[in-house]
Amino acid sequence: MEVVLCILTGLIVACAIYLMLDRNLVKFLFGLVLMSNAANLILFSAGRLTLNSPAFIEAGETLPPEHVANALPQALILTAIVISFGLLAFSLVLSYRAYQEIGSVDMDELGGNTSLSLDADTDERAVNNTIRAEL
């Protein structure tokens, strides 16, 4: 089953990256959600898959059964899920605020103006005109 999981993860990654390359900021966020799912699956596959044997110690026992599921990656995934959730919530709220301020979720517009400028990240068009005069 690991093999199928690997291919499935690859597919999810591909879809996630395709979404991230979209101009729509919301699609980017969708891509991010998928990507974090994919990362969790990588962690999960790293612990190898075990069918129907959760990592519990039965009542009365002191040791888990043989061939119990690998608990460590599960714990890591739990941590990663929660962290991704926090980051994602913040990103979502930020996109929302950015939309309120900027009025667009078009990533190319979020990059300032679409024409080339040296301070493209902040849309300081004026920079372009003076730069040669300064030299």
Binding site: M20, A39, I42, S91, L94, I102, G112
Partner: peptide
């Protein structure tokens, strides 16, 4: 303008984070 910058910062750093996790 500060939000412009933050979005890029966040987007690229989240990618880094996910790559690190992988």
């Amino acid at each position: 303008r500060q939000l412009y910058g933050t979005i890029k910062y966040i987007a690229l750093n989240l990618i880094s984070t996910l790559l690190l996790l992988s």
